[in-house]
Design a protein around this nucleic acid. Structure first.
Lengths: 112, 112
DNA sequence: TAACTCTGTAAGTGTTGACTTACGCTCTAT
DNA sequence: ATAGAGCGTAAGTCAACACTTACAGAGTTA
């Protein structure tokens, strides 16, 4: 149920802003907080939630704590979402009771 | 920003339970509420949130209102998640290929 | 040692939101 | 027209949570 925590973590806009600041690479807590409209302790609390959800990882460098995106949490959510595709399309096909010309939206497999 | 609403919608466990009840196909509100530990009006409110997030669609059949999974909301969230993969992998590759030892004790100048 | 930097946590507050019951509306059948 | 089934909404309550300031701990520098 790790995707549950990840969904909760990504639901909050401020926490998403924290998360998106790591797109370009690892950042220290203070650098993440700079430019955000919330205090640094608030960012620390958000990072804790993201870390528990396997969305970020952390490592120290001196007194600074760097955070980076962890794809484990992202993969958990993605797999959960993908599990609906076959069900939803199958249900739609059963509802239409007609021959669908072609498979509409199968996703391409990706390495992780 | 429709993925924001979808993430909020999927973050709540009860709402996910409502959503997952539509895996096998469309269901009426009363049938969805049966077996769930919350009241039928609560399910109606959850369905409204899911509908606003493009996660479900609805249609009438007599006095009954049927809900079914809408892949639009799912696709929005999936695309949002996928947008991190290149960034996260690129950032990791940049970190691995760069001269890491040089950056060991570097202190970045900060305002404030 | 002391001083400084950087971060996490404790404690408290205000708001959001998930839930309840009660009510009203629409549709169908008698 | 009346009754009943099915559903959405209004109003209110209560716990969860996102935020703040204050403090404490770990690490580095002089």
């Amino acid at each position: 149920m790790t995707y549950g925590n990840a969904l909760i973590a990504l639901a909050d806009p401020t926490r998403r802003a924290v998360f998106e600041r790591l797109r370009k690479g690892a950042k220290a807590v203070g650098d993440i907080a700079d430019g955000l409209p919330v205090s640094r302790p608030a960012v620390s609390q958000h990072l804790k939630v993201l870390k528990d959800a396997r969305l970020v990882t952390a490592y120290r460098d001196g007194t600074r704590q760097f955070y980076a995106i962890d794809t484990q949490g992202l993969a958990a959510v993605r797999d959960y979402l993908d599990s609906f595709w076959g069900d939803a399309l199958g249900a739609f096909k059963a509802y239409a009771e007609k021959d669908v010309p072609k498979a509409k939206h199968r996703r391409k497999a990706r390495s992780r």
